[in-house]
Amino acid sequence: GALQKMATSNLIDESVLDELLQDISRALLQADVNVKQVTDLRRNVKAAVDFEDLASGVNRRKVIQNAVLSELLKIVDPGVKPFAPRKGKANVIMFVGLQGSGKTTTCSKFAHYYQRKGWKTALVCADTFRAGAFDQLKQNATKARIPYYGSYTETDPVKLAMEGVDYFKSEGFEIIIVDTSGRHKQEESLFEEMKQVEDAVSPDDVVFIMDSSIGQAAFEQASAFKSRVRVGSIIVTKLDGHAKGGGALAAVAATKSPIIFMGTGEHLQEFEVFESKSFVRRLLGMGDIKGLMDL
């Protein structure tokens, strides 16, 4: 990749930097990073590298590498700590996102993850819109042996969310996950409904679920969600596919929220804690960053 080229070139002058930045920009655009973010990154790296001040050779190279990587890591890390659930207390966590992004699947993975760590977890189905939504959650929850709440007949998601959360609170559950319908910013009534569910259950955290294959619409959609509910975390799904997941950078910027987990398959266990360095590495389509940092 791009950084490889730099490693083999002895003279790092401005034209080499420009060429390198162009290569990196191309890689990032292909990885679905927001076009404007790519332009900004390019400018920021150029500003961070001052040729006059630099000594020759190895030093310069290091400075450029670090400038690129730290810019990318800066975008991935919004500088806020994610919500951490507290033991012995009811932590209500609401899942929101676009249609088909993986909310229902990820709900069970999330519950399973905490359950294995000894937490008392439960699932509430507040999706009364999607055909088969309750069956889907129910079957997943049953496989994972997680208690669930939902209804085939109730059509009001706000009522269901409230009832479910109240029930599990009264039963002393520690992590109560509320699954909601998929929605998009263009349909106001759906956003209003999301707001009402939030008001009804007062979640401790709202998790925005994002499909890793999303393209340039990521920023607008994520900011629209953030503007209506208190999104505090992001989970990126379907990273077992070929998509690089650059839309996640836009989602982080738009919501000022950290990415906490990633989905890596359809199965319950295919769920990992997010690791920003390896994610950035994937974005650039290159080998181990650590190795490069140590060059």
Binding site: R130, A131, G132, K138, Q139
Partner: peptide, 16 residues
């Protein structure tokens, strides 16, 4: 025949 709820999802649509 794999994804949870996939069969029921179609039944709901078919019924509608």
């Amino acid at each position: 025949t794999f994804r949870s709820g996939a069969v029921e999802q179609l039944h709901v649509h078919a019924e509608n």
